[in-house]
Design a protein around this nucleic acid. Structure first.
Lengths: 147, 147
DNA sequence: CGACATGTTGACGTTTACGTCAACGTTAAG
DNA sequence: CTTAACGTTGACGTAAACGTCAACATGTCG
């Protein structure tokens, strides 16, 4: 329904648009390509409440905010967070604009926990890198021994 | 079968054993408790070829090497590696004792790749921490505004 | 000697994070 | 107007990483 004037904001560089900072938008396919994921994944994340792109009729329309959020999500994934953990965090980005003291305080407390966890992970990472480095050194030593 | 003299190495502190540095060993349950995982997980890792504990009859007997390896495995898991990736790495720990030039060289190359990946993850982590820190700061600002 | 704790091997169930169709609507080109 | 490209919503399949349960052996305490 309503297929009237939906095809807005397309031309990359609107020459001299006086009242708009060239609001770029993406389709599922475009964004999926750019992020190196599939459209299925994007729809899945939406169903899981991780993102909520606008719609042009029934088609999804992603903006900069969505894109940023997605990159955050993928970054979280890359170092082992589950989608529900990620959702918890990205939801906080919205919650930080709250104006209720109680809500802000519990949010801050949770952020502290997360920071603690992240710090621990950082240490884990350093240890792993150190150990990988050790093994590499052993390799080099052995190679040297083989003159 | 062969349930003869298997119950070795039990008493924590053999009073004055002259020729042994008190080789400690663990049962599945003990090790699972210590590592905060279940016995099922330990058996699963074994089936997947990640560890190969000794046997006393049919019972599994883990030594220090197994325990170290397990901690490595869990460390890897904690920051998002799959079990097959982990297996690849822990196998290298054994491979580093090789004496074949070719093998050592491919191993070193792989270790370089891994290091690159780990470095990338480190950056991801730093970014996430920075962003979480920003959100926390926003919270504090808003709390301050509520005087 | 019987109960109980702990071990063993299957075999099957479950959750997460998507992949893979199928069936359909909508512009864009030829 | 047909075809093709891209979008939509289900519905079902799947691989990884265990959990759960059954059926059994073994050692030990009272």
């Amino acid at each position: 329904m309503t297929p009237t004037a939906e095809a807005t904001a397309q031309g990359g560089t609107t020459p001299a648009a006086p009242a708009g900072p060239a609001e770029r938008s993406w389709t599922v396919g475009e964004l999926a390509d750019e992020l190196g994921i599939t459209t299925r994944t994007l729809r899945f994340y939406e169903a899981e409440g991780l993102i909520a792109p606008a719609r042009a009729g029934s088609a999804r329309v992603y903006d900069h905010r969505d894109r940023t959020r997605l990159r955050l999500i993928l970054r979280g994934k890359r170092f082992g967070m589950s989608l529900s953990e990620i959702r918890e965090i990205v939801d906080m980005y919205d919650g930080a604009a709250s104006s209720e003291r109680r809500q802000l305080e519990t949010l801050l407390a949770r952020l502290d926990e997360i920071t603690t966890d992240l710090t621990a992970r950082q240490r884990d990472l350093e240890r792993i890198m150190a150990e990988v480095g050790e093994v590499a050194q052993q390799c080099r030593d052995r190679l040297a021994q083989l003159s």
